[in-house]
Design a protein around this nucleic acid. Structure first.
Length: 551
DNA sequence: AAAAGTGCCAACCGCCTCCCC
DNA sequence: GGGGGAGGCGGTTGGCACTTT
């Protein structure tokens, strides 16, 4: 490499080059190995020559013998790395081609940070190269405020993921997917997730949960170093998995009992989701519900979608941190929101069965109010969630907070009908309902931060995403919220974000359906089984076992 | 022109898995 | 079964080159 400044380019192998004096090694590092000081640092061409000769003679492998047989003062690992990354034949050098870049993006969407496996798909490229490229790319796009993946790639990955589940069955363990789920991959501005490291890497158990797996597709890259992690890195992966499993009520490590249409997590126990006492609690719509309620989702009346819609449109309020980012991404989101809001009828038109509002009360129970409640105290015959759909969002602020920021006056760019819907939502609120639906939220949680971030932008859609995200996150609890938060973020940070969520919310009952309905802006109806029905404008095109596919 | 910032890349480190004994 | 070595992998670091201020 050109940076190998101590490299001799003349190709002449001198003893000094091969075995530099100790004084020189001090500058490049070195370690003792059986009395032999092993050189570290950049390789010289002489060393390269030795290594090449050795491999020619002995073949690859047995790298520790290199030093023994060739006199090369390098450890076996270093030899292997040098060979693999620089010396082996058929290595392709130079910048990645457009095709290669595209492939890397696609592969990363599927595999996560599995550089070696990605390299297997890129002849002549090394894992190190790909890794470096990716890390550079991440930084670049982070700075630009762009999503890590183009929407179509995220969508494709999620589709493939879903397809994989459908084809191979829930219990199929696709290693790629496992890897994918183990990592995360949707880029969210790091500023938002800096506080999330405590929840690092929740995904390992996700593959076991059909209702969550797809979401993890969107989550992958968030566990990368660039974005921090979601579960304590000190916690061993397997341990996290194991512990997470034990926290999932009704979870069976070997089977889902075919209960694909229901959310295994959301069965009312929510031990995994219960906030710990040490956390700062926030009041956000609680989506947890008794197991019975969940199980009856398929036969329960659909939630009061209009009302939900109303509430979703109202951004959470509170003391969340604002992290405005004037990125092209958000501009695009705003544009999309404007476009959509101007072209679609709003759910307020369908709110005839919604009641009126008690303005102000809702504000008091705004989503970000800090409170604490019992998770078991949920129950509502009207919804499989054990509560009305409306109740899920009772914490949404009233009209006054329909604006873009929690701390700022309402933005001018709000969806039409926002106010009217808020009124409906307000009316649905009651202290009892609040108790049912409020939950414990950590104000430091990324979803909250994201919410504030998006709210800054004053987009009704963004707000919708935020509230939905918060609700889902709350629904899942701390252990899973980051997953869904990112899912939501993924959907939100793309101009075609709705696509991204389409798979993610597969098997997520009412919460997701409502979210989708709302995000879709009355694009659809829900069947009693929770399946999505094609909307009037055809934007909702798919129904898959209760999952939603939004095109 | 100098300093600061950024991009890029090679190499190292630690952990993990596999395999052999 | 388990201890140890070898190899693989992913994360991180450090340094040079280039660009920007």
């Amino acid at each position: 490499m050109s940076h190998t400044t101590n490299e001799s380019d003349d190709g002449v192998l001198s003893r000094d080059q091969i075995e530099p004096p100790l004084a020189e090694e001090g500058s490049s590092g070195g370690s003792a190995n059986g009395g032999v000081v092993l050189k570290k640092g950049p390789w010289t061409s002489a060393e390269d020559g030795i290594l090449i000769e050795y491999v020619k003679k002995h073949g690859e492998g047995n790298w520790n013998a290199v030093q023994k047989h060739s006199g090369l003062s390098r450890c076996g690992k270093s030899c292997r790395l040098r060979w693999a990354n620089h010396l082996r034949p058929n290595l392709k050098k130079g910048a990645f081609t457009q095709e290669e870049e595209q492939l890397i993006i696609e592969l990363h969407a599927k595999m996560g940070n599995k550089w070696a496996r990605m390299a297997a798909h890129l002849p002549g490229r090394t894992d190190n190269e790909i890794k470096n490229y990716w890390n550079t790319r991440i930084k670049r796009r982070q700075r630009a405020g762009l999503p890590l993946y183009p929407p179509e790639i995220s969508f494709q990955a999620s589709q493939e993921r879903q397809l994989g589940l459908n084809v191979s069955g829930i219990n199929t363990r696709d290693k790629d997917h496992q890897d994918l789920l183990r990592t995360n991959s949707y880029e969210i501005p790091d500023v938002i997730f800096d506080s999330l490291k405590a929840n690092h890497d929740i995904s390992p158990y996700v593959p076991e949960l059909p209702g969550i797996t797809a979401s993890s597709i969107l989550v992958k890259s968030l566990s990368s170093s660039q974005y921090g992690s979601f579960m304590s890195p000190t916690m061993h992966r397997q341990k996290r998995l194991r512990e997470s499993m034990t926290l999932i009520p009704g979870y069976s490590g070997s089977s889902f009992g075919g209960n694909r249409g229901s959310h295994t997590l959301a069965n009312g126990n929510f031990s995994a989701s219960k906030p710990t006492s040490g956390l700062v609690k926030m009041e956000l719509p609680s989506l947890q519900y008794p197991e019975d309620g969940l199980g009856s989702w398929g036969t329960s009346p659909p939630p009061l979608l209009e009302t939900v819609d109303t509430f979703i449109q109202s951004p959470p309020t509170g003391t969340v941190e604002s992290s405005p980012r004037n990125s092209g991404l958000l501009d695009a989101l705003l544009h999309e929101a404007k476009t959509l809001s101007s072209t679609k009828n709003h759910s307020s038109d369908k709110s005839s069965n919604s009641s009126t509002v008690i303005p102000g009360e809702l504000a008091e129970s705004s989503a970000l109010n800090i409170c604490e409640t019992e998770w078991e105290d949920l129950g509502d015959p009207l919804s499989p969630l054990g509560q009305t759909a409306t109740s899920l969002f009772t914490e949404c602020p009233p009209i006054s907070t329909c604006g873009s920021s929690l701390d700022e006056p309402p933005a001018t760019e709000t969806l039409t009908g926002c106010n009217a819907k808020s009124e409906i939502a307000d009316q649905a609120w009651s202290p009892e309902r609040e108790k049912e639906t409020t939950t414990l939220l950590d104000v430091t949680r990324p979803d909250i931060l994201l919410a504030s971030d998006w709210l800054e932008k004053g987009s009704g859609y963004i707000k919708d995403q935020v509230v939905m995200m918060d609700n889902i996150a709350t629904f899942l609890g701390d252990d899973l919220s980051s997953d869904y938060k990112q899912m939501s973020a993924g959907a939100s940070t793309s101009n075609q974000g709705w696509r991204l969520g389409s798979c993610v919310w597969n098997n997520m009952p009412a919460v997701c359906q409502m979210s989708w309905l709302h995000l879709g802006q009355d694009l659809s109806l829900l069947s009693e089984t929770g399946q999505c029905i094609r909307g009037d404008d055809g934007n909702l095109s798919g129904v898959d076992g209760g999952s939603l596919t939004v095109l």
